[in-house]
Every structure is written in C-alpha cells, then in structure tokens.
C-alpha cells in the first residue's frame, strides 16, 4: 500500500513539474511573439525586460529539471 502511495506521489510531482515547465514555455513563447512584434514595429524599450524575464523563467525551468533528476536519483 505504501509503495503504491509513494508511486502516486511521485507521479503527481512529475505531472506538476511537467505542467509547470509547459506553462513556463507558453509564457516564454508569448513573450517572444510580443518581442518580435515590437521589434518589427521599431519599439525596443520592452526588449531588455522581456529577455531578462525569459532568462529568469528558463532558470526556473532548469531548476525544475535538475530537481527532478535529484529526486529521481534519491
């Protein structure tokens, strides 16, 4: 019974991590689309913050993946 519960928990954690990574990806995609649009329109003020935001999201995403690996190893 305990083993099943542990498996379920592991499964839920993995699902949560995948969902989080996908949400991050979607937000980055949106930010990229907006940035391209603004770049084409010649407005550049939002480009730097958008790039920083995207990098920050990437760091979160990578942390999730690394945590996943540690979790797997444990």
């Amino acid at each position: 019974m305990n083993k099943i519960k542990a498996l379920e928990k592991q499964n839920n954690i993995l699902s949560f991590k995948i969902t989080l990574a996908m949400i991050i990806f979607a937000v980055q995609l949106y930010a990229m689309a907006m940035s391209v649009r603004y770049y084409m329109a010649g407005e550049s003020t939002a480009l730097w913050p958008a790039a920083l935001f995207s990098i920050l999201l990437l760091v979160v995403s990578i942390s999730v993946a690394i945590f996943d690996r540690k979790h797997k190893e444990a």
């Binding site: 499964n11 995948i18 990574a21 990806f25 980055q28 930010a31």
Partner: peptide
Amino acid sequence: NQNRRQFLKTVVAGSALLACGQVALVAAE
C-alpha cells in the same frame, strides 16, 4: 516516467531556445 522525463527535458530545451531567441533580439536591437 522515463518518457515523461524525456518530455520534460524537451520542454526545458525549448525554453532555452526561446530565451536564446530573446537575447538574439536584444543583440539585433
């Protein structure tokens, strides 16, 4: 789980690509 982990890796790689794209835009600007 292995397949899903592979998928997770792919999504993170996609995020990395997008972040690179953003940096490229800043460089172009």
